[in-house]
Each structure stands twice: as C-alpha cells, then as structure tokens.
Design a protein around this nucleic acid. Structure first.
Length: 431
RNA sequence: GGAGACGUGGCCGAGUCAGGUUGAAGGCGCUUCCCUGCUAAGGAAGUAACGGUGGAAGCCGUUCGUGGGUUCAAAUCCCACCGUCUCCGCCA
C-alpha cells in the first residue's frame, strides 16, 4: 500500500511514479478527493464525540450527587447528538472503505533509479555469466523433459494423470536431486538467516499484506470451505511473521529463510513456454527474506541478490541478471533484480530468482513498525514502517531443469556439480 | 467433532456477576535524575499506539482480542467472529 500521507501532501510525485508503470492515475485523483471529504467528516465526528463524552461525564456526576431528576435534559441532548453521529459515521465509513478499496489495488512506486521502459523487453541486462551460445554440445541441447523421461527421473505424464497439466513428479534420483537442491539452498544461508517452516495455508489478510490480494485473485488457489489460501511463495507467511508488531531498531535487520511448497494457478498460461518444468502449479522453493530500516535496505537487497546469484553460479549454470524496468515491476516492488539461468536444452532464459525491495509497501499493509533508537528524547521516537525485501534463494523446478540440461553428458548421464555432491550422498553423476 | 473456561498496557496482574473523573490499581521491567567513594541498597519522576490540532507545552478523539448491538455513558451488559487453555472423541 502506498503512503496515503504522501499522496495527500505530494500528489504529483505519486501520480508521476504510478504513471511510470503505465497505469492510470484516475483512481489516485478519486482517492485524494475521498480523503479530503473523509478527513473533514472525521473532524466533525471528533467534535461530536467530545461533546457526548462531556455530557455523559456531567450525567455521571449528577447521579453521584443524587440529583437524578436533573439529568433528563442532558440525556435528551446527548441522544440527539448520538443519532446524528450514527448518520455521519456511516458516511465516513463508506468513504474509508472506498479509499482502502482503491488503495489496495494501487501498486508500489518504482524507485527513482529503477530503469524506465514500456515492457519486459526494456529490462536492463546488467550481467551475463558463463553464456556462450556456440559452446553447447548436442547432448546439452536435449530438453530436460526428454532427459528426465529417458532416465526415469521425471514423470510428467503420470503427474498430469493425478493432478492435470503443469504438475510435476520427480522420481528416484530426480526426486533426490530436488531434495538436495533444497538442502543446498538452505545450508548456504544458515550463517545469517533463521530457518522458518511456516504454514502453507494462510488467511485472506495474510495474502493481502503482500499485495497478492485483492488484485490477483485469479492467480491464487483458494480453499473455499475453510477460506484459506495455499501460498504462492513463502514471502507471504514470512511477511506476516511480524504483522502488527513493533520491533526495536536494535533487532533489525531480521533475516529469515524458508523452504515451502508454492502454489500458483497460472491461469491461462499453456504452450511451448510451459513445457516440462518451465512453469508448474506446485513447486518447492527456498525463500530469503529481510525486514530492515530504510537505511539498511540497499545493503540487504544487495546481500540477498548476491546470495541468490552465488547459489546459481556454484551449480555451474550460465546466468544473467536483469534490472527490471518500471513497467515490468511486480505489484509490491520498488526495485527488482531477476536472475535468469540459461537452460540450453529448452534454449530459454529461465527466471530462477526475483529479488525485490518493497520499501514500506507491504509493511504498511501488514502493519509492521520499528521503534528508532532515540539519541535525544525529543527526536526520532515515533515508530516507523519497516522495509521488506525478498528473493528466491533457490527455486527447484527451473534450477533442476537448467542443471539437468547443462550437465547432461554424452553418455546420457548427468554430472552432479561438486557443490551439490555432499547433498547427493557423494554421487558424482545421475543415471 | 462434543463440553467448559478464558482473552486488560513491554510483562505479570486488579477491575467485569452492582455500567459513570479507570487509558485503566498494584507489581515487575525499562529510562532519567538524586543519594551513596565505584559493583549492593535507597529516594524522586517518567514510561502504549494511532489519528487530529498547535511553534511548543498541550488539547481533542480512538483503542482493554476483532467487529457489531444496547445505553446519555461500556474494559464492564448482549451477539457474532478470531485466538488460547482444559476435558472427551478422533488422528500422522
């Protein structure tokens, strides 16, 4: 959620920022005028409440003094005020509801240094590592769904029989490889990040706090009977870990990591870009997460990106880093770097991590604040919203795919990268 | 799933079954100051969040799990929801 106060005081700045995303700003104008009316009414309500409180106190003291018969007139006056208050409060509530309805659908403001563009084509490639299109052998050009089937380590057909298309089933060493990747993803961040195993089914408010609801209902699964949502990413429950809390600045940054299943409906996406493991409804992922002060945010952002990048690099995969332009930014993000691994068999760059700085956008929705360390009693004692950052530390299916294709050997086996061998019981190859 | 109990400030804990200076006694913790030749002990004051207004001190409003209702007035009465605990049942 964007800062209503900022919208109020610097409407043009906010409108310009939203316009960068290619979104209409008419909702912002409506919100500004609703807010003006709302505050006006709030002032009136405030005065009336004050009046009623005063009258009630007098009635109370008259009763205490035994002057019961002198209260009738005061009560009548207060009752009349109360009736008017009910009407005017309904008006205010309607305005408040309208404001929050629109506010919940307004995306975050892009960071000033976020590149400008019109579409995903304008994302800026900031780094390419290990990619040489002519260097790939014939066996590396075999897509993972073929390798997987040949080796019996991936069974998309039976998965589809159970759950439909775009569901995966790993088998044997393939399943072990998936599990090894998770362990690998967690262990390498154990030094700084607390491991969390959150629930995978969450309430509506929890989905709302990250920005996944209400705007993107169609992308999420929903268990209606219990009104719970299977999480699309661990970012969702991790954000709510501190919801409603006020943390000491001394305790920031808070670094968390979690391995969970992730569920995405991926409505309307089928075709060549979704073959095999390229896009699935359910997958495992290790997420890295940070809560911090605004001053710490840049460092944490770089840290998460660096860790996600190194995890891919250490698997011997070719990859590139993209600085997402404003038009391609996720709803809640102010700045995002994507890591794409190259899958030579599918001949595609696969997004394997998206590292986002959400500023206070999610903190405002989840109401997560911190109390600044006060040097002088007069200054800086007010609570402020924390900043939140997230990024995939390791997303299994696409890394699995890129790895299997990249390390496919002429003899049909798959070489296990050295960094992963300890997690595969020392095995150097699969198949 | 059935039955019952409970939910108060950073924490503990009064107040709820007699609705009225109770934003909330008391304690702990924390902060500042004083005293004591340092660590112990003692004394004084302060110590929620959010919104509004003001240069500031302050003033006004809201919040006693959440949301509604009753009332001139609700932490206190009524309803719904959320959560916690106990017993029974079931279960990995």
């Amino acid at each position: 959620m964007i800062d209503l106060h900022l919208l109020r005081t610097q409407p043009d700045t906010v409108k310009a920022a939203i316009a960068r995303r290619g979104e209409s700003t008419t909702a912002l104008d409506e919100t500004i005028s609703c807010d003006r009316q709302h505050r006006q009414i709030l002032g009136k309500i405030n005065e009336m409440r004050s009046e009623i409180n005063r009258i009630s106190a007098s009635v109370g003291s008259l009763h205490r003094d035994g002057r019961h018969n002198e209260t009738a007139e005061l009560k009548a006056r207060s009752r009349e005020l109360g009736n008017r208050l009910t009407e005017i409060t309904a008006e205010a509530d309607e305005l408040a509801a309208q404001i929050s309805r629109t506010l919940l659908k307004i995306p975050n403001l892009p960071a000033d240094d976020c590149p400008s563009g019109a579409s995903a084509d304008d994302n800026v490639v900031t780094k390419v590592v290990g990619y040489d299109t002519d260097s790939y052998t014939e066996c590396q050009r075999m897509p993972h769904w073929e390798i997987g089937e040949a080796l019996g380590i991936l069974d998309m057909n039976r998965a589809a029989r159970m759950s439909g298309s775009m569901f995966a089933m790993y088998r044997g060493e393939g399943a072990r490889l998936a599990r090894a990747l998770i362990e690998y993803g967690l262990d390498r961040n154990r030094d700084l990040y607390e491991e969390i195993r959150p629930p995978t089914l969450v309430r509506t408010e929890v989905m709302t706090s990250t920005g996944h609801l209400p705007k993107f209902v169609d992308d999420a699964y929903h268990i209606e009977r219990d009104n719970l949502w299977p999480i699309p990413t661990a970012e969702v429950p991790l954000t709510s870990l501190l919801s409603g809390e006020i943390v000491d600045e001394a305790d920031l940054p808070v670094r968390l990591m979690a391995h969970t299943s992730c569920f995405r409906r991926e409505a309307g996406s089928a075709g060549s870009k979704t073959r095999g493991l390229l896009r699935v409804h359910e997958f495992d992922k290790v997420e890295l997460y940070g809560f911090c002060t605004p001053a710490q945010a840049a460092d944490i952002h770089a840290e998460i990106l660096g860790r996600a990048e190194q995890a891919i690099a250490d698997l011997g995969l070719a990859y590139r880093i993209l600085d997402l332009c404003d038009a391609d930014l996720g709803e809640a993000s102010a700045r995002t770097f994507d890591i794409e691994a190259y899958a030579p068999g599918a001949d595609q760059w696969l997004e394997v991590s998206s590292v986002s700085w959400c500023r206070a956008y999610q903190a405002r929705r989840a109401n997560i604040r911190y109390r600044p360390r006060s040097t002088r009693p007069t200054e800086g004692k007010r609570t402020q919203m924390v900043h939140t950052l997230n990024g995939s530390g390791l997303a299994v299916p696409r890394v699995w795919a890129a790895l299997v294709e990249t390390h496919h050997q002429p003899d049909g086996r798959i070489a296990v990268p050295e960094a992963l061998q300890p997690y595969m019981g020392g095995a150097t190859a699969i198949g």
